[in-house]
């Protein structure tokens, strides 16, 4: 279990984390979601005692991380896939980490096998691909068979087989009663893996709820309607709490009432409807709804003329 209380980190004039409080419970996968620069990594680094909180506190299994007698058995963390000396082999890296806790060599071989690193274990970690680096980071996190796992973007750079493996692994560990806290910017991944979500934006917690609740709660259900008399149906449906958008000549998106009510209105008025599809809102929709005011680094599309200019300059 991870408990953060009014946890804050301020770098000079910039507030990275602005006093967040949350609890990550055992026996489930808790996802940590937020835009770039929202404070996810900083929060995780404070949990691991790498960064000192400006104020507030955070405990893991009841104690600050550094106060545990056997930290690697309490928490395994993958915070940065490149937290490895580039000149050392994966095997020796794990062996050196294991030595601090007297973890037997057999366990080092075990995590190497679990993460599929057998073939490259004796090679220098500096030559690893991003995916291999992630596997090594996960191997290091699993080394002490910890009660709590903290994984920052674990599927980053993994191949589909690796993504599936991580998903199964974290689900398995959560079912074993362990605490799993993982961040990801891949919302589809979160929707499939996490039970509970903590959404952070600009250093503040925006949502802290089960995944299903977040998906259901943020956006009203929409229904896609195709009809050959769109303007007529549109005016019939419009009313209190109902909005109708017409995107194509014969297509309406209706929010506020369900498919059955729409069908009843159409039947009563003799309007032909040839498609009626409920639009399930995804976690992605929910996420954008939640974070639309919190995104720090908006991306902008470059305008046409700017794109064209190199070509003209070349002439």
């Amino acid at each position: 279990m991870i408990e953060a209380k009014d946890l804050a980190k301020v770098y000079g004039a910039k507030t990275a984390v602005a006093g967040v409080s949350f609890t990550v419970r055992a026996g489930q996968v808790t996802g940590f979601l937020g835009p770039n620069g929202a404070g996810k990594s900083t929060t995780m680094r404070m949990i691991m005692g790498l960064d000192r909180p400006t104020s507030g506190s955070v405990t893991v299994n009841g104690l600050p991380y550094a106060h545990h007698k056997a930290p690697l058995h309490e928490v395994g963390a993958l915070l940065d896939a490149k937290a490895v000396h580039t000149g050392r082999s994966a095997y020796n890296h794990l062996l050196a980490m294991a030595a601090t806790h007297g973890i037997p060599k057999a366990r080092v071989h075990e995590v190497i096998e679990m993460t599929g690193l057998d073939a490259v274990a004796k090679k220098k970690a500096g030559g690893f691909s991003l995916g291999m680096g992630q596997r090594l980071g996960i191997a290091a996190a699993l080394l002490g068979d910890p009660q709590t796992l903290i994984l920052d973007e674990p599927v980053n750079g993994l191949d589909p087989e690796g993504v599936l493996w991580v998903r199964n692994l974290v689900r398995y560990l959560a079912n074993q009663g362990k605490t799993v806290f993982l961040s990801s910017h891949l919302m589809s991944e979160m929707a499939q893996t996490a039970d509970h979500l903590i959404v952070i934006g600009r250093g503040r917690i925006i949502a802290d709820a089960p995944v299903q609740e977040i998906i259901a709660g943020t956006r009203q259900s929409r229904t896609l309607v195709r009809t050959d008399s769109a303007p007529q149906l549109s005016s019939l449906l419009a009313g209190d709490g109902v909005t109708v958008d017409q995107s194509e000549p014969e297509t309406l998106t209706v929010t506020g009432i369900g498919p059955r009510e729409i069908a009843e209105v159409a039947l009563r008025n003799g309007v032909l409807v040839y498609e009626l599809t409920p639009q399930v809102s995804s976690l992605e929709d929910a996420y954008f709804d939640l974070t639309k005011d919190e995104v720090e680094y908006h991306s902008h599309l470059t305008g046409g003329p700017a794109l064209a200019s190199p070509a003209t300059a070349g002439k």
Binding site: K69, L72, T100, H101, I103, M114, G116, D145, G162
Partner: peptide
């Protein structure tokens, strides 16, 4: 490069030992 991974049963606590940092 083969990247075969196993979702093998998580090993029992004993295999990782239970010593603290010494």
């Amino acid at each position: 490069m083969s990247t075969h991974t196993s979702t093998a049963a998580a090993p029992a606590r004993s295999s990782a030992g239970s010593h603290g940092v010494t």
